[in-house]
Design a protein around this nucleic acid. Structure first.
Lengths: 201, 201
DNA sequence: GATATAATATTAACACTGTAAAGTTAGATA
DNA sequence: TATCTAACTTTACAGTGTTAATATTATATC
């Protein structure tokens, strides 16, 4: 009598299908250019079916962003263990963060800029994936502070300074692609290097 | 025969009226929550009248943002002359930039995040106000570099690093108001201080 | 002052949006 | 076979950006 289980599985499958379709459309054409009808079309269901799986369009966006955060977290955690120098590990994490943002620019903007607009004060609350990402950063930083590699400063602030730098350069590179930036990789490295040096000083 | 001039003046007045109404609504309720009809209502004209003054909604947004940039430029230029130490001047400019962003958070997001989404590769092209803002930064930085206050690095990159930092912290503070940030002023100062120290190192 | 002309504003309409409510259908249980 | 229930669709509503056609007004010319 596994019918119930099968049904639950099928339901979850459709949920995933919706998510996949939504992400693809959001990412390629922008959140505000995608209608529920377009998503529905893509998966060949009626538009209102989506509402059986997601409260509204913002909730759907929210779920897409959760996945992005999870994806980012996984990407970061793959680095974690194979580095003895904590400062070097932090540097690498910074690079990975920015690279992630540039590899999936629309996902990044959806998650860190657009979603906050639609659901205020979200994404970093206790137990959330967002918080886990920040915890990752906290750990990295904490290691550097403990080993006295940085000037005396509390871990929170230090982390926030670093986040500001990588968030800033990521968004600028995404949003102003035509600006005469310094060669991209060099700029990213310089931003991270400068910030880390500043934390030592 | 000043009728022509008067007419032109009246036309410009209505244009301004539209801009003022649009800004107020965009800023208070968000670009995507404001319809052309709502703007029209506010100024007591029919919705389509707006189209005699602006190509479309994105063009209207564009004009609002131009004003914001001008406003930012003026705010920055008021600082310019009364500072002998270029590094200190740069520090103050950074603070002013972030404060501007936090004082008009919706304007800031409209200008530096949302507008780029609607008209790609904009706002910093030659002769634009956006370019003038960046030129201001360039001058500040250039002074520091010339006086050998910073480590040897080209002016462009240095400016971009600084911009990344202030842009990043501004947006994080705007977008995640509920995150347990270090006390706001302290965070801003630390971001700027750290970046500048990093540029010296 | 009457009339033609140009500028300005409005009305009506189109195709599309998010989403609530009601209706339908297919499969499981009895 | 009859009933129940979960899944899905149809219909509908109020609102959207925007265009084309129309109406109104103010000016210039006679």
């Amino acid at each position: 009598m596994g019918t119930k289980e099968r049904r639950a599985r099928e339901k979850e499958q459709l949920r995933q299908q919706i998510l996949v379709a939504a992400r693809e459309l959001f990412v390629n054409e922008g959140y505000e250019n995608i209608s529920m009808r377009k998503i529905a079309n893509k998966i060949e269901y009626s538009p209102t079916t989506i509402y059986l799986y997601f409260r509204d369009k913002a909730d759907l966006l929210d779920s897409v962003c959760q996945e992005t955060l999870l994806n980012l977290l996984n990407t970061l955690e793959q680095l974690k263990r194979d580095e003895s120098d904590p400062v070097e590990a932090l540097r690498k994490s910074g690079r990975t963060y920015v690279e992630f943002g540039l590899k999936y620019p629309q996902d990044y903007k959806l998650t860190f800029v657009i979603r906050p607009q639609f659901q205020k004060g979200l994404g970093l609350e206790e137990g959330s994936v967002g918080e886990k990402v920040f915890n990752y950063l906290r750990e990295m930083v904490s290691e550097c502070v403990q080993q006295k590699r940085f000037r005396q400063m509390d871990v929170e602030t230090t982390g926030q300074v670093l986040w500001s730098a990588v968030h800033g350069v990521t968004l600028l590179l995404i949003d102003f692609p035509d600006f005469p930036w310094t060669e991209k990789d060099e700029l990213i490295d310089t931003v991270i290097h400068t910030t880390i040096e500043g934390l030592k000083a």
